[in-house]
Amino acid sequence: MTDWLSPEEWTAVRLSLLVASTAMLASLPLGLGVAWLLARGRFWGKSILDAAVHLPLILPPVVTGYLLLIWFGRRGPVGQFLDDWFGIVLSFRWTGAVLASAVMGFPLMVRAIRLSIEAVDRKLEDAAGTLGANPAWVFVTVTLPLCLPGILAGMILCFAKAMGEFGATITFVSNIPGETQTLPSAIYTFTQVPGGEAGAMRLTLISIAISVSALFASEALARLASRRVGAT
């Protein structure tokens, strides 16, 4: 494998997997919370929250990346705050790539989880309440297991989106080999240099393999989970 890929290519693959996995895991708690609010909450501004979550889906990725640059760049209001108080720098770092791909994958994750929460039978939650479970336990023992297929689907969608994310990432954190050069950026770079076709093809094949594996994994997990909840 290492012979087949050059060290730089191998680094891009590893970095992409790291960025996508981190983006998926880091946005999961917030994704669950927002999905819960949208599915169950009744509050002023719910439609605004809904629109805000879906914004990255409809905006050109470059616009999202540029907005991130303005807000989270070193001179940006949030970026400066993070740097001053926590020493966290996002722009032109792999963590910035995580933020960009998480933002892009977030709507897909929230959508899948929200639908599965809406599909949970509230009557089962009432039943759990009469058996002595407080709302937090009802969520953990009944709601969460019942929407597990949707959560898994949301995570895989977010992962796949993060693996393929290009526009926002390259705008926000550029294309630095070893730091922010993910698979799509690396493929793009290959296509920009003479004689790069072979490298582009190798990475393209790897990209296809990872995406198809993720798809199969999600199908298998969803089947397993829905068999567990008896919804065959």
């Binding site: 009432d126 759990a128 058996l131 479970a133 019942l146």
Partner: peptide
Amino acid sequence: HRRRIGYVFQEARLFPHLSVRLNLLFGRWF
């Protein structure tokens, strides 16, 4: 959940993701 009043619903409302044993023991945890 603090009333300790058992409720048998018209349509059973068993938890589909749990075995009969775990359904039965559900209230025991609390």
